[in-house]
């Protein structure tokens, strides 16, 4: 398969046509996988012997956290594509992904708090992972605010793309800084969320299905939002054109 064929989808018309075709399938599949994963996870897995039924929030928490990071990675890639190849659709896809990623971050934070309350006895702890996600949330906030603040679409695309690149570096720095910072403060307060390694198969398979559901949901939402962004941009361009002719 020729990778160059991929660039054809940078054509807005082609992108919309393709999105129209695949969107229903992706959306239905996402709904199916999500329902299957969550129902399986919530009702057909045994309670954990230590954590009881609270462990089941893992089926929302882990996929959401994964997608929160993946959404930013996708924005990073599409921003790079915009900077290098100047495909408008790529910039708009980054714009479309940002709110989805932000909501995923919020879900991860909220479910984490709900899980943490019975487990650790507190809604919030300045654990490195939690703190990193809070910081990620702030990065999403700034990125989205910059898109909204700038009127000219191309200027906004350029500036947000550079912000995304610089922000990625600083987000990574913050991640390590936070790790360092908390170790320095509370020795031994290891609230590790790394359950993947020791989780048993009965929990693992529904989790996989749930993760697949979240991925598909993300793809569906981004396709839909990118399509909307393309149409909105097209409308702005047509209005501007009309003003020019008048």
């Amino acid at each position: 398969m020729n990778l160059n064929a991929l660039w054809a989808y940078a054509n807005p018309k082609k992108f919309i046509e393709t999105a129209d075709r695949v969107l229903p399938a992706v959306a239905w599949l996402a709904a199916l996988m999500l329902a299957a994963g969550l129902i399986w996870g919530f009702f057909f897995t045994p309670d954990d012997f230590r954590q009881g039924s609270t462990v089941k929030i893992i089926y929302l928490h882990v996929p959401a956290a994964l997608m929160a990071i993946n959404a930013w990675l996708m924005m990073l890639v599409t921003s790079l594509v915009w900077i290098v190849r100047r495909h408008h659709v790529s910039a708009l896809a980054a714009r479309a992904a940002a709110p989805v990623g932000m909501v995923m971050t919020l879900i991860a934070l909220a479910t984490g708090a709900l899980w943490g309350q019975p487990m650790w006895g507190t809604w919030w702890a300045w654990d490195p992972r939690l703190t990193s996600f809070l910081i990620l949330f702030l990065f999403y906030l700034g990125y989205i605010a910059l898109w909204e603040a700038i009127e000219n679409d191309d200027t906004a695309a350029d500036l947000t793309a550079i912000l995304c690149l610089v922000g990625s570096v600083f987000a990574l720095l913050s991640r390590y800084a936070v790790n360092f910072w908390n170790q320095g403060l509370h020795q031994g307060a290891s609230l590790s969320l790394d359950k993947e390694e020791n989780v048993a198969d009965v929990f693992w398979y529904p989790l996989l299905v749930s993760i697949a559901g979240f991925v598909l949901l993300f793809v569906a939402l981004v396709l839909m939002r990118t399509r909307t962004e393309i149409r909105a941009r097209r409308m702005r361009a047509l209005l501007a054109r009309e003003r020019m002719q008048a």
Binding site: I135, L138, F139, L141, G142, A145, L146, A149, I150, T155, L159, I162, L163, V166, G167, F170, A171, L173, S174, Y176, A177, V178, F180, W181, G184
Partner: peptide, 29 residues
């Protein structure tokens, strides 16, 4: 980033503060 914007002040804080985090963490440490 915000030089051309009319109400850039608040946005500037929102953009810059997350970027300040590593410096603040290590500096205060």
């Amino acid at each position: 980033l915000t030089v051309g914007l009319k109400r850039g002040g608040l946005l500037l804080s929102l953009l810059v503060l997350p970027l300040y985090m590593p410096t603040l963490i290590f500096g205060a440490e």
